[in-house]
Amino acid sequence: MAATQEEIVAGLAEIVNEIAGIPVEDVATEKSFTDDLDVDSLSMVEVVVAAEERFDVKIPDEDVKNLKTVGDATDYILKHQA
């Protein structure tokens, strides 16, 4: 079953917490991965791969650069999840 927007944000929060050590409650849709959450370009790849597995979605390298905020990633997953 496809995940809802809330479930995706919560899932991304857990992933970001695991990879970058950011508290789950700090991860919200308007937050920028790089500027607000201290997720650098390489950690972003780890976040993307973890999100792919968790939400059964493919996020190609060329799309990763467009995912600036948690909201961008949430929308992308909502649209592309199997």
């Binding site: 370009s41 390489l42 972003m44 790849v45 780890e46 993307v48 791969v49 390298d61 990763v64 650069k65």
Partner: peptide, 12 residues
């Protein structure tokens, strides 16, 4: 090199 693409390929 394309850093992110190389990183993903190399790690995973």
């Amino acid at each position: 090199q394309e850093g992110q693409a190389v990183f993903r390929w190399a790690v995973f």
